[in-house]
Design a protein around this nucleic acid. Structure first.
Lengths: 338, 338
DNA sequence: GTCTGGCACTCCCCGAGCGCGAGTGCCAGG
DNA sequence: CCTGGCACTCGCGCTCGGGGAGTGCCAGAC
């Protein structure tokens, strides 16, 4: 077990390194933090911390740098989430309040997060699988072609075309629309398959094919994982990463473009509470020198999606966590208001 | 007026510089292109080209590099659009053909363009102002709250909430829906205001307020310029820019994040035919070392939106133009099929 | 007039060498 | 267990010089 002071030294190293972006030495530490001990003592502590794998030196006789393990300990034990100031909170509320629709909410959230944290922001659209159905709309585009529009309680809209074998009358369409909605409106997506299973039975044989086609399109839409969308912003902040550029920034940009990677990352995070994944914990080659801070958000108690930021492992964790948490809360509020 | 050979020299300089990314000298030129003249002659030509401002040297006694003016001449007079190969075209068609909805079409187009050109791709969503209305849907969310859904011929869906002063019956709602659609379905957005102007008159006094509210929300949606959306991809390709990184890449990323900037850029491009804006022609500080190749696309003869790529001024113009044009064509086809 | 070969000149790039300074590990003493 | 002292290490930045690619100019040939 590490002594109290050694933890204090680790905290100081993390803080200084995050601030200066340069390896920190024993002398500088004692000067900037009042540790009440001499540099030599700190050196001994550092040697111990290095032994345990919390810090490392880039070269012999250089200062120390926290390792992923060191950041992990810092986040778990040594850092408190830093709450935002009142003006900051007001600004968030004002900014998000001006949104006109879901797209706009997400877009504004991304901008906001990127600006607050000065890092890359990622916001997932409210997930279909955890939402409920607000309304299903059916339109005839052509005699044998329908459009299915699915509207969720979070305001998300999905649309699909359905080709019917036989023309489908306006009366039948109205009936199907009415029955469909009376069954699924307000229900969770996961319940829908069960609720509509016997719907085709109540239609004439000749209409049954089309009804089934509509239903299967609907079900497909509900489970479609590829439709887990997200929005990214603040990539320009990547340029503040370091100066060893192409090597660092390239794989990160590539990872960010692969929405699959990000969705997986967010998916692996805890459903409730904040998740911080540091460096190698991301299990992704391009993201070994980045950390991801994410948290769920939703209109009610339950999270409908996640948002977060991606930044260098060398980031201001308390501040970032504070911003992420605050933004998630306000987004939840905005969604609840609609 | 420049002689034939001097133009040939300029073309060779552009081609070599694009290939090697290094200033090109007279000797290398004569070796790689069979100009049938000696380096000394080429040097004279180069001096003339420099005099005219088509090329420049980074330092005394270094090779020459094309200027924006040089690229401009190259694009206008010396280069032909390079058509894609048959396999490439088939690949495009296959890839785009798999799209399930408009979002997917746009997303796939972005990926495709980025991959083909190895540059940053930008695709504008079909513009509302040039589309026609396919359907307007009205749903009652609550007694005094409606949702307005606007579906365009390009498959785009916009939704807005409308608060009514007084509850609005289901019958009235159906009537409004029917009348609204019979007037505007199939019409261009620009016509809509005229077509619905007298609609409130045909309703009872007490319903008129709500009808007006719905209409004004509809009109707002139609003119909403902020809703000109676009999608970006391939930013990782920026890392191939050069090695003097932070300085080059930073402002470009920032410009790309400002969708307003991009929309302005695309907006200034010609409506028909391909537009190439080179370096300073973009009138944007962050984009002085990038060129934008853009073209309109649409389901019919007329362009409903634009797409293009952003890359270094030192880019393969013929190839890029070929890819952009081909992709635009196929996207148009896909849209027409729906 | 136009092209060519020759020649002197310029200037960037690259690697070697060097001093400085920050930081370390270790040790002896409090 | 902490502290001050001390020798050592090693990366960084600087300068310096050689090599090479490229240029401009000029005189001569076609």
């Amino acid at each position: 077990m590490l002594s109290e002071r050694r933890l204090e030294v680790l905290r100081a190293i993390v803080q200084d390194y995050v601030g200066t972006e340069e390896p920190v030495g024993s002398k500088a530490l004692t000067e900037r933090h009042n540790l009440q001990v001499s540099p030599a003592t700190v050196r001994n502590d550092m040697a111990a911390l290095e032994e345990e794998g919390y810090i490392a030196q880039p070269h012999t006789s250089a200062g120390r740098v926290p390792t992923d393990k060191g950041y992990r300990l810092f986040v778990d034990k040594l850092a408190d989430v830093k709450p935002l100031s009142a003006p900051e909170r007001r600004a968030i509320q004002n900014f998000l309040g001006g949104a006109v629709d879901l797209d706009d909410v997400v877009a504004r959230t991304v901008r906001l997060l990127a600006q607050l944290t000065r890092q890359v922001a990622v916001v997932q659209y409210p997930s279909l699988s955890r939402s409920t159905v607000r309304h299903v709309e059916l339109l005839a585009l052509a005699p044998a072609r329908l459009m299915l529009v699915l509207i969720t309680d979070t305001g998300r809209v999905e649309q699909r075309h359905v080709d019917c074998l036989a023309p489908f009358g306006e009366t039948s369409l109205a009936e199907l629309r009415a029955r469909l909605n009376s069954r699924v409106a307000g229900e969770r997506f996961t319940e829908v398959p069960r609720l509509v299973a016997d719907l085709p039975d109540s239609f004439d044989a000749e209409e049954r094919g089309t009804v089934s086609a509509v239903l299967s399109t609907l079900l497909e839409t509900l489970v479609e994982e590829t439709e887990e969308r997200l929005m990214i912003g603040g990539t320009a902040n990547l340029t503040r990463f370091g100066q060893d550029f192409p090597l660092t920034i390239r794989p990160v940009l590539e990872a960010l473009e692969e929405q699959v990677v990000l969705l997986k990352l967010l998916g692996e995070a805890k459903d409730s509470g904040m998740t911080v994944r540091i460096g190698h914990e991301n299990n992704h080659e391009g993201l070994t020198s980045t950390s991801v801070v994410s948290v769920g958000y939703g209109s009610g108690d339950e999270a409908v999606a996640k948002l977060g930021v991606v930044g260098p492992t060398r980031m201001d964790y308390p501040g970032t966590m504070g911003a992420v948490r605050a933004v998630a809360r306000y987004v939840g509020q905005i969604l609840a208001e609609n």
